[in-house]
């Protein structure tokens, strides 16, 4: 299966933060949820893909092209949705279309205005007056109008109301019906990716904590609960984000480690959200001990 996006050993150091050996890949035809708490390195990774940040080492290829040397050819076929609108706020949709049109070989004005109509966006109002959801839809309409094969979304849902978030999922579901396309969806609202994402990459402290299919992720981890004294000594080592309280404990555990679990301990499947929370707890724990 051809990868529409492939990152190998990406390293990038800043004074106060660094990406360490980030590697993951997204096959053509699928949606990847790119999750992790704020500051985990999602945006830096995306800026590296766009060649906006200069990578220290590693290799990123998009459509099989190199992100540094072929960045222009890549951007011709790439749609990007940021958390805020990057267009001139005093212009209306028509004026924006005029502005962007010449930059893309495959720009299709008809398609653009069809999308604008479909998304219920007024074409004569200043885009600065648009609601957050409308701005997001405008950026998607732009991506769809130059036949982008890969759409990268950087926290598009932060600050969006549930209706607009649901609309976004609708749009992405429709987009990915074409199996030649791909979506990289960065968010810290995991409910958005829980349903539609095929693949999930979890970033934590600039490192890849997990990457693979979503089913693999949710089937590999479970939340375990019970009384602290019931935990076998061998198991205690393997618990992630162990959290004890007055009447018991809870923690994340790999499902492989569930064998031989005493009946007094209960477990249930873990959501991506829970996994993220336990990863964060585990780190705090390490810092304290």
């Amino acid at each position: 299966m051809e990868n529409i996006l492939e990152i190998n050993g990406l390293c990038k150091a800043y004074d106060d933060f660094s990406l360490k050996d980030v590697s993951f890949s997204l096959p053509r035809g699928f949606i990847m949820g790119f999750v992790g708490e704020n500051g985990s390195g999602k945006t830096t990774t995306i800026r590296s893909i766009l060649n906006m940040a200069k990578i220290d080492s590693g290799k990123i290829s998009v459509f099989g092209l190199d992100s540094v040397t072929d960045t222009i050819a890549i951007k011709e076929r790439l749609g990007v949705v940021f958390d805020s609108l990057y267009l001139a706020e005093h212009l209306n949709v028509k004026q924006i279309e005029q502005q962007l049109k010449p930059f893309y070989k495959d720009w299709n004005s008809e398609e653009f205005f069809r999308r604008i109509g479909e998304f219920d966006l007024p074409d004569n109002r200043k885009v600065g007056d648009f609601s957050k959801g409308m701005k997001m839809k405008l950026m998607i309409a732009i991506a769809l109008s130059h036949k982008a094969e890969l759409i990268i979304l950087d926290e598009p849902t932060s600050g969006l109301d549930p209706v607009a978030r649901d609309e976004l999922l609708d749009i992405l579901s429709e987009y990915i019906e074409d199996e030649n396309r791909g979506v990289l969806f960065s968010t810290h609202i995991t409910a958005d990716v829980e349903r539609i994402a095929d693949y999930v990459t979890i970033l934590h402290n600039g490192k890849v904590w997990f990457t693979g299919t979503k089913d693999e992720l949710t089937e590999s981890y479970a939340v375990i609960k019970g009384a602290e004294e019931d935990i076998p000594a061998a198991l205690k080592e393997k618990l992630i984000g162990f959290h004890a309280y007055r009447n018991g404990f809870d923690a994340l555990i790999k499902t492989d480690d569930l064998a031989g679990l005493p009946d007094t301990l209960e477990y249930e499947k873990a959501s991506i959200d829970e996994i993220l929370v336990y990863i964060a707890k585990e780190e705090k724990h390490e810092r304290h001990s």
Partner: peptide
């Protein structure tokens, strides 16, 4: 003013131009 306020740098980062 507009270029600074709207973060045109982000836009420029996505456009297929040098």
């Amino acid at each position: 003013g507009v270029a600074d306020k709207s973060g045109f740098n982000k836009l420029y980062g996505t456009l297929p131009v040098k």
